[in-house]
Each structure stands twice: as structure tokens, then as C-alpha cells.
Design a protein around this nucleic acid. Structure first.
Lengths: 319, 319
DNA sequence: TCAAAAGTGTTATCCTTACACCCATGT
DNA sequence: ACATGGGTGTAAGGATAACACTTTTGA
């Protein structure tokens, strides 16, 4: 530990100067009106957040407190996303560290304070919804990204930009990969095509790409949450945190489709769910869906600890 | 933002009181002498760490600085692990937030300061190495965990404890899952079988389970890093961060085996690597391995941006 | 000649994919 | 009748797992 003390002395700043503020930021996701929505506060579309305080028992409980206070929304499942030091404030006297979380809930119809708003995440990311085929906006993006790529100084850099754009957005006969939400946003940011990237004032003459921006870097945090969720539903049964207690298999499918932004095959999806034994029949049916009444299922909560639900990918020796 | 301001005013504490210290902690992993080793400083086996300071450009650069200063070891690949508020210090005047990272490097033979030490991670987790079959210590653990389970008040709690132990350690004909490193450690902690859990003084009469403990909660952070790495090598080509520029396929296999703590099947492993086009032949061979000279391969760095290397698990509709 | 490691083939099996088709209900 | 959603079957193809076997070197 003496090494560490040495480090502190190297500058003239006193120890106290290195204290920081810690901010807790929540991406609260719920299904609302058939689509994935994120909870925002204020006109400028901010994620609920607040400082971590001495009174908080833990980071998570601090987060729950802020979200309930600012939105009236109780949280269920919570998972840490990422921690970052706010870049925009470098040079000021104090640093801010932001600890972001992903939370999954059901929209609380009854309560809910005034300033809150459930916003479809595709309002902020219109290019991410491929449920009705590739959206038209992607073609716009392609043209503008090519323009950006051609603006590079060297030929190698031009090729590199084109290649990165093609991978992220599935141009040139590449496949669309719904998990690359963050890369796509970062690329648009780098190309200064989103409103946030124009705030410096430099390229403010350009019209930003369609899609609602958010305060500070909150849209980037939302992109991180979307990417995490889209990847996680494939190997952990987290979708059920967003489902009502009883649901039909098609409702489950529609939820997964809404999250991943693409359509999935019905028969195969059903088999996948059933063979994994993630759900069990309740015996009840519902006719509310139109057409033939559908069986109602329930999530098997006991599966969570019964099986680790993590298959190996290594070709293990012997059995 | 007015909501947030309201929140701050609720107590009588001034804003300044909610400032925190941010600590950066590194789990630096490298292959050394055929085994996976972690970089420690001091006699008590501490991970390199230090406070995040105003002078640091970013969290990552702060971390690099501390590690180099304390150990002389330059870092390559870095990835954030987890952020937590130190529980042990609740109630004190100031909170400490720890931001932990996983770093992968090659051991720097030349440099290296005095107090550093490359320690096999299996010194701290002897029950995690199953390369020579299930280690004997697991049988001890089984007995002591059953003892712990039977100590529960209710019958339901007894069953629950037994089940959790069986899942984590692969008892009762369940399969060993190498990714559950963290769960296993947490279970042993809960059962007060590791030295750290005895520090309160209560159950200090018991003899802790074999395995070198570390300062504070550093062994828990190491367990987190091991679990992350064991899971990540299955879907991202991070192993190559630990390999020399040129290597044989068996060396690569031995590295993966050392990390995951289990043996893998040679022919199938080779096919897997080759069909994924992660490596390319150099044309050279080496005879240093004993036996027939082996072809030397090199990691195809270009694959990193060429393919996202993230396969979908959803049964997508159409193509 | 033998041990040790490198490397190749082959087969059975499971999982995924793609598609075609039938069932039950309300209008 | 027909639209809408619910639900089942099946066959092809690819990936994985298990195992047997040949090749090339150094001691």
C-alpha cells in the first residue's frame, strides 16, 4: 500500500481534491402497448438518475430510491451496465462517475408521477426496428455514411470507414446483426450524424439523422442497454421479467421480436421454448387474442436455480 | 432535473458529504509457466489498485497508471468487470466505490518492480482446476457443505442449500460447470468456509478450506474475473491476448484448458479453431515441443472487425 | 525401437432451419 | 366461408461429440 501513497503525493493536489461524485442512472424497460419502452423524465428525455448518497444502503437500493422518487415506478430485475467517468467535465474541479443500470419491470398503471414518460425505444433508434423489413431510414444512413467515409483523408481510412459501416448496418449483402446497437450508434456519433455529436457547435449546419436524441449521453446509455438486453435474452431467461404472470406463446414471441427488432419463426420458437422447459401450461386458455383460443403459460421460476442455463461451447474431452 | 434537486434537499446533510472516493482495481492475467497467473502486490496478496484522480484522463488510463507504477507491468487488453460500493465501510463518513477491471497481458520478464508476484489463480481456487480429474479438495468441500446445509433451521432451507451446492459443484451426478466460479466462491463464503468470511471473529474457530485468501474482497473480484474470462473465451477470441505472436495449436489448446480448468478434445478443438478462421499458418514449424515438429500459427487480427463473431440464437423468420 | 506429440478421418447424433400443413374460433 | 391466430409434423443440413488411426521427430 506504500506504493499507492507514493502515487498520491506525486502532484501538488491534496487528497481531498480527488473525491468524486457518483451518479446512478437507470434504463428502465417495460413492454407497453406491444413495444419496448424506456422510462424518461422531463421534456428533454432524460433517464431517471441521482447521486449516490451516504444514506443509501447499496448502489442498487440508491438506484431504486431515485427511480421511485422521480417516476413512482417500482423496479424488479436490476443489472449493472457500465461505469464511466464523464468526459464532458474533464478539466473541472471535480469528476463525476456514472454507474448505469438496466432494469426490467411492468408499467405501473396506477401510480406514476407527473413528469414521467414511457417512450418507445425505437423513437430514439428508428433504424433498429426491422420487424417490417429493413426500415427506409437505413437507406438514408447508408448514403450519409458513404459520404462520411469518402470524406476521409487517406484511401485506407476510407475503406476502413466503409467496412465498419457495412458490418454495423449490414450493407453489401452482409447480415443484419441486431446486437450491434451500440456500435451503430457510436458510428453515427463518429460520423457526426446524430444531434449529440453536433452540440460542440462545429457541424451544427448539418441536419441530424432522424431519431429522438436525449440529454447528455443518455441515448448512448440506452444503446448500451438495448445491446445488452438483445444479447442476454439469448442465453438467460430475462424476457419473463417483462411478461405478465400468464401469457400465450405468441405474446412471448411478440415480446422477443419487439426487443430484438426482428421477426422470428413461430413453430421453431415454440419448440425452442418448450424443449428448454422454461414454461409450463396453466390449463387455462384465453380468447382475447382473436382466432382460436390460446393456451396460457406461466414461467417456471424454479428453473432459475435448477439449471445454470449456460451451455458449454468447448469440445470437452470424454464425457 | 428539478426532481433530482428535490431529492438532495431531503436530508440535512450538505451536498459535500455525499462525495465518494473511487478506487480502481485490476485483475491482471497472464500465462506464466503454463498456468494462468494473476498479478499481486504485497505479502497479503493484494490486487494492484489505486484511487481515481483528477489527473487521470479516463478510468482506464488511471488503471494502467497504477498497475505500471505498482508492478512495472504494461497492460494490453482491458475490460471493465464490475462496480461496487464497499460494504465493509458502511457507516463511516465516506464511501468508497470500487471499479474493477480484467486485463490480459504477457508477463514482462525484463521489468517488474520488487513487490509484485505472479500467482497461479489455482493457488487461490484449488477446487477450480479439473484438468487432472476432479481434485480431492472437492470431496472435502462436499462434506463440509452438506454439514452446513444440515445446519439450517428449516427443512426447506436444508434442501435449498443442498441443491445450490449440488448445482455449483456438480454433486449428485450433475455436470461440472467451469463458469460458476463466482457462485462457488459465494457459496463457500455464505457457508463461512473461506478465511475471509471468518474475519468478523465469529466462526474463527473453524479451519478454513484450502486455498490462499487475499486482502479485503480481492479474492471475490478474482473469482468474478475468472468467471468472466471462462465464459468469454467461448464467444470472443480473447485467448489470443494471452498467446505469443506465434504458437502451435496444442499450445493454444493448453492455454484454453488452463483457463477453463478442464481438458478438451484435441481433434475437435483443432477443427473448431480452423473452421472459424481465427488463425492462419505461418509456414514455419517448431521442434521445441518434443515429438514431431508442429506448425506455427498466428492470430488473424483482421478477423476482429471483419466479423462480429456473435451468432444469433433466435430462430429467425425466413432468411 | 519407443515415447511423445502432430495431425487426419469417420461416424453417429443432436440441433437448427425451412417449410407445409391442419385446428379452432368470431364475424 | 373466411380471416385470424393457434398449433403440429417432417425432412434436409450443419454442427458437435466420440473415437480410431497414421505421421514425424528425438532419445
Amino acid at each position: 500500500m506504500d506504493d499507492r501513497a507514493k502515487g498520491i503525493r506525486k502532484g501538488k493536489a491534496e487528497v481531498k481534491a480527488n473525491d468524486v461524485k457518483a451518479d446512478l442512472i437507470a434504463v428502465v424497460v417495460a413492454m407497453n402497448g406491444g413495444g419496448p419502452c424506456v422510462l424518461t423524465v422531463g421534456q428533454e428525455a432524460a433517464l431517471p438518475s441521482g447521486p449516490f448518497e451516504l444514506a443509501h444502503r447499496s448502489l442498487q437500493s440508491g438506484l431504486r430510491g431515485w427511480v421511485e422518487q422521480q417516476t413512482g415506478q417500482p423496479l424488479g430485475y436490476i443489472e449493472q451496465l457500465y461505469t464511466f467517468a464523464d468526459r464532458d467535465r474533464i478539466g473541472e474541479e471535480q469528476r463525476v462517475i456514472s454507474i448505469s443500470y438496466l432494469a426490467l419491470t411492468h408499467p405501473d398503471k396506477a401510480g406514476g408521477s407527473a413528469g414521467r414518460h414511457w417512450r418507445s425505444w425505437y423513437d430514439c433508434f428508428p433504424w433498429e426496428d426491422h420487424r417490417s423489413g429493413t426500415p427506409a431510414v437505413v437507406d438514408d444512413l447508408r448514403l450519409r455514411l458513404i459520404e462520411w467515409a469518402d470524406g476521409a483523408d487517406e484511401g485506407a481510412a476510407r475503406l476502413d470507414r466503409r467496412r465498419r459501416a457495412a458490418i454495423a448496418f449490414g450493407f453489401d449483402d452482409r447480415h443484419w446483426n441486431e446486437e450491434l446497437t451500440l456500435q451503430r450508434y457510436e458510428l453515427l456519433y463518429e460520423a457526426a450524424l446524430v444531434e449529440e455529436a453536433m452540440r460542440g457547435g462545429y457541424s451544427a449546419s448539418l441536419t441530424p439523422v432522424p431519431g429522438k436524441s436525449m440529454i447528455a449521453d443518455h441515448r448512448r446509455i440506452l444503446a448500451t442497454a438495448m445491446a445488452r438486453l438483445r444479447s442476454k435474452i439469448k442465453y438467460r431467461p430475462v424476457v419473463f421479467e417483462l411478461m405478465p404472470p400468464l401469457f400465450t406463446l405468441l405474446q412471448l414471441q411478440r415480446t422477443v421480436e419487439a426487443l430484438s427488432g426482428r421477426l422470428i419463426n413461430k413453430p421453431n420458437f415454440r419448440r425452442l421454448i418448450e424443449q428448454q422447459e422454461l414454461v409450463e401450461e396453466t390449463g387455462e386458455t384465453t380468447a382475447e387474442t382473436g382466432g382460436r383460443p390460446a393456451k396460457l403459460y406461466r414461467f417456471r421460476h424454479d428453473i432459475l436455480d435448477e439449471r445454470p442455463v449456460a451451455g458449454t461451447k468447448l469440445p470437452l474431452a470424454r464425457a
